[in-house]
Design a protein around this nucleic acid. Structure first.
Lengths: 196, 196
DNA sequence: GCCAATCCTGAACGGCAGTTCAGCGTACCT
DNA sequence: AGGTACGCTGAACTGCCGTTCAGGATTGGC
């Protein structure tokens, strides 16, 4: 079960970054959380930088997959869009479970700026996220739920707006909490997709 | 002229963060860029963390003030909104000048997550940014340029969308460059503010 | 011309954190 | 039972980097 150990380390790294910040996270923090020696962390990952980038990608992918799974259960395009928006709102996480992936986005962006590999991975996930939106919109258009709009443009706009709102909500900006974020994103979607 | 020296250090810190990344920036990097000894940097700032947060706030404030200045020169509300959007698009900076402030936003967010002082400063600047948008919209509404909309809601949505788009553009995402970013933001504004 | 404040530096310190490595236990294979 | 591969650790190494400090230069006031 060397694979679960690997995932434990990645999860612990994500938690450590969430709690201590990207710059302050040490290998010892990760080891402590897993309950192993620092040397073991370097046994699974060649270097600290590789550990950090792998952990960021790991958690982001988990997030996308969990949302994708939830989307499959919804019947109408409108339901699916609402789910996608709701899932995008930062939530409080109880200690012990994996951190909300929004907390790690700034760290991902900051590292991706100077790490082409991470940048490519992030771009790939983001493209998948946007095409998720595109297919929801196209379904809604062909079923008559939505007005005919440029799905690609809308997907970029909505994804960007969700990112921007999530930043505010995550940072505890008093004017944008999770509730208001969801409301604003839905009102934007409604304005575009209903009676265009 | 101890004040210019202080600003030089802040500018050099911003440049160093932009070039080396938040975590990899050392006091020696800053000192080297200014052409002074590392000890002098600590003469002006009590600690490395204080230096970093001050530099982030400094550059963000410069950005806001520069945009505010440009906005005063425009006649119509529509012109001002376009300027605000254009200025929000990441630009290439030539070596030697201060970095584009978008490059530093992820670092700001990452630090603000765990630093209440920086979080408060960021929230204040963001609030000013949004109320800039609010006053543009209100002017446009009263002059008849724009349809009557909820200016506050729109300002949050537009600011969030600009943040999100700028992240993609800054990271070199192939689907969103500065040109496309500007076009998408303007199309959103047009859809909301014209014949709503 | 002297004193004090300010700006600035070189050098040393102190400690920490990433990384390496030799080796221990254990499980599995033959 | 013997050997081998794997998972894992403790301990040491090493180089770096933030921080401190004692003091040199320069300026400006009196």
């Amino acid at each position: 079960m060397t694979d679960t150990r690997r995932r434990d380390i990645l999860g612990a790294t994500a938690t450590a970054i969430a709690e201590r910040g990207l710059c302050e996270t040490r290998i010892a923090d990760v080891a402590e959380r897993v309950g192993v020696s620092p040397a073991l962390v370097l046994y699974y990952f060649p270097t600290k930088a590789a550990l950090l980038t792998d952990a960021l990608i790991y958690l982001d992918r988990l997030f996308y997959e969990s949302v994708a799974e939830k989307l499959e259960k919804a019947a109408t395009a409108e339901d699916r869009l609402v789910i996608l928006i709701e899932e995008s709102c930062p939530k409080q996480t109880t200690p012990g479970e994996l951190p909300d992936s929004w907390v790690l986005w700034p760290a991902t962006w900051e590292m991706a700026r100077l790490d082409p590999t991470l940048a490519a991975a992030r771009a790939r996930l983001d493209e998948a996220w946007r095409s998720q939106i595109v297919s929801i919109v196209e379904d809604g258009v062909s079923s008559g739920e939505f007005v005919d709009v440029d799905a690609k443009d809308f997907s970029i706009q909505l994804a960007a707006m969700l990112d921007g709102l999530a930043i505010e909500a995550m940072l505890g900006d008093p004017t944008v909490d999770a509730e208001r974020m969801s409301q604003l994103a839905r009102s934007f979607a409604r304005a575009v997709l209903k009676r265009g």
